[in-house]
């Protein structure tokens, strides 16, 4: 089984929001970045994947099995949410004891090594730790039961760049160990640009695309032009556009095609953040947007 996690047609409806037929899968040994604006449905997707909310439709399979079919599956999943989930008067030592009692696979020596590496004092109460240190403690707890899949929901949000770099390095190390994968939701797209192998973009509860990051960087591009040139553009070539003063920013899904078809334009390489902004803030040529690679 090459896919650690398979999500198919995951649907969940609320009164004012719908997670609509979300589908993607995470291959073994890769990092999947889940991007989208606040309220796009990233956390709802993760909550539904983990069975914290009841899905209306769809299937979620870890190593080919449903999550509630076996407790062993949970042994193999490490999760880090956006804050620490242990009460503030606990210490890293007590957190270790609680986790050791929960997981059969718990490795006290690995936990100990993480505490030392993160300079976390065993007897210090959680309330005295900084946000970054709390996050490191969460990561230490999540990695010490030897999971094969790590699920991170905005785990790097609110951390300074140095702390984020440290944490990203740990994730990269985790994936280098054979067969491990990560599903990482974040609105800090620069983090995902550094480490992700695949990007799934969720917008208003729907998956806009799920692609290899290298393909995105290779295929997608941004054209900046003035109104007269913008009018000449074939709408089918445009994924999204945005006007900034006299300048039009156009997102295209096939950089090479755009270069060949529109000789006088410069097609710039695009960052994931630019892409996110264009999809979220920009206009679409049609109401139902034509999107290359639509899943």
């Amino acid at each position: 089984m090459d896919e650690i996690l398979q999500i198919k047609d995951l649907t969940k409806s609320y009164r004012d929001f719908k997670l609509d037929r979300v589908s993607f899968s995470i291959p073994k040994g890769s990092i999947m970045g889940l991007i989208g604006e606040n309220g796009a449905g990233k956390s709802t997707t993760i909550n539904a994947i983990l069975g914290l909310i009841k899905k209306d439709k769809g299937t979620v399979r870890f190593w080919g099995k449903e999550l509630d079919s076996s407790k062993q599956i949970k042994e193999n999943i490490g999760v880090v949410f956006d804050g620490i989930n242990f009460y503030e008067t606990l210490t890293p030592e007590k957190v270790g004891k609680i986790c050791a009692a929960a997981y059969k696979q718990w490795d006290s020596s690995t936990y100990q090594k993480f505490l030392e590496r993160f300079s976390l004092s065993k007897g210090k109460e959680i309330k005295t730790l900084s946000k970054g240190m709390k996050m490191k403690l969460s990561i230490a707890a999540a990695l010490s039961h030897r999971p094969k899949l790590l699920i991170l929901d905005e785990a790097t949000s609110g951390l300074d760049p140095v702390m984020r770099a440290d944490i990203l390095e740990i994730f990269a190390e985790f994936v280098r160990e054979g067969g491990h994968s990560i599903l990482m939701s974040s609105h800090i797209t620069t983090d995902l640009e550094k480490v992700a192998d695949y990007i799934t973009f969720i917008h208003r509860g729907k998956v806009l695309f799920c692609k290899r990051k290298s393909e995105l960087c290779r295929d997608y591009g941004m054209i900046r032009c003035e109104s007269d040139l913008f009018e000449k553009f074939d709408r089918a070539d445009i994924l999204a556009y945005r006007r900034e003063g006299n300048q039009w920013n156009i997102l295209v899904g096939d950089k090479e095609m755009a270069k060949n078809k529109y000789k006088n334009v410069v097609v710039d390489t695009i960052t994931i953040e630019d892409m996110l902004l264009m999809y979220v803030k920009g206009d679409k040529p049609n109401e139902e947007p034509y999107i290359k690679g639509f899943v």
Partner: peptide
């Protein structure tokens, strides 16, 4: 205490039901 640190959410990702 559980509510303050969103423990139930975390507990359910552990091998417990």
């Amino acid at each position: 205490f559980d509510d303050n640190c969103k423990w139930s959410k975390y507990a359910l990702i552990m091998p417990v039901c």
